[in-house]
Amino acid sequence: MTDLLQLTFSGIATGSIYALAALGFTLLWQASGTINFAQGEFVMLPAFAMLFFAAQGAPLPVAFVLTIAVAVAVLGWAFKRGVVDPLFRHGMMAIVVATIGLSIAMRNGVRIYSADAHPFPSLFADKLLRVGGVTVSLADAGTLAFALVLVVATQAFLARTLTGRAMQAVAQNTESAAVLGINVPLMILYTFAINAVLACAAALLVTPVYFGKFDMGESLGTKAFFAAVIGGFNNSRGALLGGVIVGIGENLAAAYISPAYKDAVALALFMVVILFKPQGLLGRKEERKV
């Protein structure tokens, strides 16, 4: 029983990492129909930016703030203007392939800078807590708490503030939002900026575990995609749920079914979920249009 709890908690901690990356995925999808195959690299780049600023002598919080500024400009504004805007009306395929190209370029650009894995300072002290026979590292608990706060904050921002509501209106129906006098391009730009900030936060939390490496985004991006699909692509809370389910599912499959097939076992289960609830667990149904 304690073993099961141990696995479950570890899974939740890992899942909250996936969720952080998945959150941005769902936001971009809602606001602009963008599926960003470079989402993992969007976490990797800030990790290296922070390492770079830290190497120049900046303390971690300063490095974090500087990185956010750069990320909002590059991964937010420039990404939207340079890649998404020109492709927006050409549909999903073009954007998907452009972001695949982007991920190749980003990964291999950083690889030239360094092909090594770099340790990354953790926000939390290196402490182990024992709760009812289960050992939890402070970092695991902290990551989970942080992920929860970020998801709740994002939700609250979208639901409670005027800007957030306007962004949601854009996401649901761009044309009527425009008719209502909402500045649609600005709202979409906000979404991209938020995605960039979330990517920086994710980098701060996941890099101590993933280590700063040029290809860290590869597996992270795939897992985040799975989490987003399972949770429901058009719902931010779904990202957290999806991430946690992926995290726990993999652990239980590895422990009780087959370590060699753990990825497939978890995916097969999700596939069943998807077949019976094609919108994901918390997603809304999208109408088919003629």
């Binding site: 570890s10 597996s219 652990n251 590895a254």
Partner: peptide, 11 residues
């Protein structure tokens, strides 16, 4: 590239 080794170590 596995991240969570709790199940492996447990086994």
């Amino acid at each position: 590239a596995q991240v969570d080794f709790s199940a492996a170590v447990l086994r």
